[in-house]
Design a protein around this nucleic acid. Structure first.
Lengths: 227, 227
DNA sequence: TAGATTGTTAATCGATTAACAATC
DNA sequence: TAGATTGTTAATCGATTAACAATC
């Protein structure tokens, strides 16, 4: 654990193990740092960063310590430098193209949503299994057929697949994305998926979020912001 | 901790403390149970439920034990009965009306998305602060003004506010929702919000999900499905 | 009875936090 | 030097899991 100033491992970092809970918070810090940078700030303390991220200061320091020793005692963290380190740790060094699978309600909604592109995840393609939907366009993007996924992924260098199909089609979509060679998958279907260990994936279920809130709401709201 | 068979507390349950990690998984079990019910199954083992939810069987039994002693040794869990218990614990006994704040890209997307209503959270109203947007309709719903929120919430008995504004307007939206009397808040803005402890809230940031995936992707994908 | 499966225990593991020495 | 703030330690807390007695 001995770590001197910046000697050997200031480069791509002594990678390996960042705890899962820390990884999940790095995007929070990243977001706060970007905002501070926009505001013209140059340094930030763990105290301030914690306030912006909605966590406690000890946690911020502990989390950041997994990336390296990038603060200055008595001063704080250099915002530009730390932003770069967090970006690098998260692998956000370049944009990652996204393909949306499923041109139903949710797929169309996501296609119109500009939030992905704004944060470095441009939507490069949309596919559906339904021939009657293929050929229509949305936001200048043509809807293509699921069968063409391997070619589409290769052509655009697509890294991420987003599953926006009905529940019944989600596993098939996952299989197609894996076969086409995407490197990770985000699913909006409320079911578990069978995906090889080599492809990290996550699930976002909007109704689940509301159901969790429902629990805390029904208990008089003693606990705020249950993470 | 002593809990005998079903004597005193089989009713609204010895409420109090269900661990946060368990609460976050109850919607997973709920979803799996609903699907099993649709398939005509009548009982399920912790093993099978675990498989469907993507967790391990010991965790399922431990989680369910916080709700009460609702299984039968040697047999498993009655699906109908357990579904009701999980619903009751989550406070899903009746539909909860939702208001969407922000009629931009994301707000319109959510308004078109039917997934909320299908899971018991019908969208009852949409508001925006921009007068030029007020009066348009989407999916038969009129866009109303943010200033009318208190009346709208009261009239429709709205329980949940969904923040779909730009980052810069999110805190103002939160303040308005709290003042209007919603009971919980789901925010899509990638920032921390200052909300009283009496109103539970959660944040869903789609780009954050992709950034977390980016980390695991860049590490060779050793870890699958990082929760 | 034999087989199956729960509910609970206890060990382990990982995450959180306060505190403080190091050091700018 | 005095004040501020990091990086790390160590204690605590909560979550996970295997194992198994209880019991259908």
């Amino acid at each position: 654990m001995a770590r001197s100033n910046p000697p050997a491992n200031s480069g791509p970092d002594a990678a390996s193990s960042v705890p899962g809970a820390t990884v999940a918070r790095l995007p929070l810090y990243h977001q706060a740092l970007v905002e501070l940078g926009r505001d013209g700030e140059t340094t930030v303390s763990s105290e301030r960063l914690a306030e912006l991220a909605g966590v406690n200061a000890a946690k911020v320091r502990k989390d950041l310590s997994y990336l390296g020793s990038y603060g200055t005692r008595g001063v704080g963290y250099d915002i530009d430098f730390l932003t770069k380190q967090v970006s690098r740790t998260l692998g956000l060094t370049a944009d990652s193209a996204v393909v949306i699978v499923g041109f139903g309600n949710l797929g169309q909604a996501l296609a119109r949503y500009s939030g992905f592109a704004e944060r470095g995840f441009p939507i490069a393609a949309i596919v559906d299994i339904d021939q009657s939907k293929v050929g229509s366009t949305i936001e200048d993007l043509p809807v293509q057929h699921l069968d063409d996924l391997p070619a589409i992924v290769a052509e655009h260098g697509i890294a991420v697949g987003v599953i926006a199909t009905p529940l019944s089609a989600a596993q098939n979509a996952a299989d197609a994305l894996v076969a086409a060679g995407v490197q990770s998958i985000l699913s909006f279907a409320p079911s578990n998926l069978d995906i090889p260990d080599s492809v990290p994936w996550r699930k976002v279920d909007l109704a689940t979020e509301l159901q969790i809130l429902s629990f805390y709401q029904s208990r008089g709201g003693t606990l705020s912001h249950p993470a």
